[in-house]
């Protein structure tokens, strides 16, 4: 019978490749967010419109059910009718949920690591700055997809399922692309912005406030300027290029071939949006370092 002393022993096994490191960070962050009761509550609240829509889709496909309750199916048929603009309106509605989610999941992502100086710990492991950033971004992206893009795509699928019309999916491939593109127009800049802001502060509250400031303050100014500016001098719609909210407002209808609210070519908006994302990238590149350069 052997006798063992409890002590430190060397590891004989093998190590997993580094390419998985970001999934660890993402998994950890998602579980961490999920553990909080209030967060689960907000998440379900954000998905509430989706649940309502599922019912609506079911009804639209099974109008006969209404007979059972004593309604005349004919009277609601027009209300329940579903066309492409329906998905557009759903995505815009869920963009509000995106805004809430990005603040809840994103504001503390890097701020908390800066608060407890955990960045040094992360970067001293065999992962790169990009692994870290990608892992952290995945946490926010996961929840944003969960409240916007995935419900919308699920609705497309449910429509086909409830109507037993699988041709609906193959016939509307373009629609699916539009949904994916539109969600990314929202999700990517929001995530980039919250990460950049989170990396500049140590507190969740500051990050949230800064995010709201960046989002709403330019918008207010743009509104004031547009109201004051004389149209004969220049097109006041150009001011909307300075507001992230207005940029999204302009780009989303264009993707769904709807009428755009402002009289400026969309390419400018796309350009400004990429500049914003690029700036966020530069900030992150500067902030996420294992070395503090002391002057």
């Amino acid at each position: 019978m052997p006798v063992y002393r409890q002590t430190y022993s060397h590891y004989e096994g093998s190590y997993l490749p580094r390419s998985l490191a970001w999934t660890l960070i993402a998994r950890r962050g998602i579980l961490h967010a999920w553990r909080k009761k209030w967060f689960r509550f907000v998440l379900i609240a954000c998905l509430f419109p989706f649940l309502v829509m599922v019912m609506r889709f079911y009804l639209a496909a099974n109008l006969d059910v209404l007979n059972y309750f004593g309604f005349d199916p004919g009277s609601v048929r027009d209300i329940l009718d579903i066309d492409i603009t329906f998905y557009y309106r759903f995505l815009i509605m869920q963009s509000f949920a995106c805004f809430i989610m990005v603040i809840l999941t994103g504001s503390d992502l890097i701020a908390s690591d800066r608060r407890t100086k955990a960045l040094t710990l992360y970067l001293s492991k065999p992962i790169t700055r990009l692994d870290y950033l990608f892992g952290k971004a995945s946490i926010a992206l996961f929840f944003l997809y969960l409240v916007q893009m995935i419900p919308c795509l699920t609705l497309v699928f449910l429509y086909a399922f409830f109507n037993e019309d699988w041709g609906y999916i193959t016939g509307n491939i373009q629609l699916i692309f539009r949904i994916i593109l539109l969600s990314h127009i929202y999700i990517v800049p929001l995530t980039a912005l919250i990460l950049a802001i989170s990396s500049m502060t140590r507190s969740r509250v500051t990050a949230t406030v800064m995010f709201c400031v960046v989002f709403f303050v330019p918008e207010t100014f743009v509104n004031i300027l547009r109201a004051l500016m004389d149209e004969s001098w220049m097109n006041p719609d150009y001011f909307t290029l300075f507001s992230l909210g207005r940029i999204l407002e302009q780009l989303s209808p264009i993707i769904f071939k709807q009428e755009a609210p402002f009289d400026v070519h969309w390419i400018w908006y796309a350009l400004v949006l990429s500049v914003i994302v690029g700036l966020c990238g530069l900030i992150l590149n500067k902030q996420i370092r294992a070395v503090d350069v002391v002057k």
């Binding site: 190590y15 660890l24 960070i25 690591d113 608060r115 955990a118 710990l121 492991k125």
Partner: peptide, 22 residues
Amino acid sequence: TYMPGMTAVEFVSYCGMLCGLP
């Protein structure tokens, strides 16, 4: 420094995983 919101075991095993331990 530490990683916030974790128990000691979670924290240390998470560090182990980041280094490639299963």
